[in-house]
Amino acid sequence: MTYRLWVDKLVQFGSAFLLAAKILVVLMIALGLTIKAWPLLQHENLWEILSSSVWSPLKGHFGFLPFILGTIWVTLIALIISVPLCIMASIYLVEFASDRLRKSVLPLMNVLAAIPPVLYGVWGILFVVPIISQYIAPLFGIETTGFSVFAGGIVLAVMIFPILISIMVEVMQTVPQELKDASLSLGATHWETIVSVSLRKAKPGIIAAIVLGISRAIGETIAVLMVCGNVPQIPASWFDAGYPIPALIANNFGEMMSIPMYDAALMFAALLLFVIIFGFNLISRIVLSRLEDHG
């Protein structure tokens, strides 16, 4: 008897220890990034770093604006493409599709989610980039290699399909049938019911899904790096090359360490990503768990 209780206690403390260790690692990541980025913050003030568009490490100028805007461009393009598509598709899956269709489509989304970023990048280079340079850009009378924020946006849009669809479907399924019945029995059509009742009820969840999609898009590194062109300039159109923050880190880390402050600048970039994504995730997860509780 005492032996059994002893084992129980051992497991309890062991697990608690692992949990604490894991939480400690997170704190260490945040702390480590801050310490490493600190020299840059002392060198220039935060606002200067974020708002300056001059990136010339050799002269000691680290303006992050081109990278921040590069990230914002690809993320926005990805959202413009994927959000309407995913909302429409999830409505269809929840409200109109047969059980069989729903049960065969949702696992496909898991497959899409399982495809590694590098393969999305390969697809982007093989398909998206040539299509843009040969077909889409000429439509607007623009000449481009195709390596552009637009290409990055398309690849990212496909990458965030699964997370958007799976959460939106889940959220829309929590809208009670009786609520929809209430609207239907007033003579609303199915579509009117969806627009003014289901979507309205599901709005917080849909927004949370979008925010999660955004944070996924902001952090995505390799696929975007492969198709975006990586020129440290502020993109002026969909067909311009851009240089998102994660690509900056991946391309330069460990290579330019002899330049003073470069290390700190890249760490600052990582810290920026960490803070933004942590914040976005935190907000949307809290919203989603509230929904689940009330659901």
């Binding site: 609520l179 019945d181 029995s185 003014s196 009742v197 309205r200």
Partner: peptide, 27 residues
């Protein structure tokens, strides 16, 4: 929709639509 308009349904539990009191009535 015409058929349903002819009948008001009062369900087991009240299900107010996710909007204001006024908007519920004029929905």
């Amino acid at each position: 929709t015409h058929i349903r308009k002819k009948m008001g349904l009062l369900s087991q539990k009240p299900f107010p639509l996710p909007m204001s009191i006024y908007d519920n009535i004029v929905y």
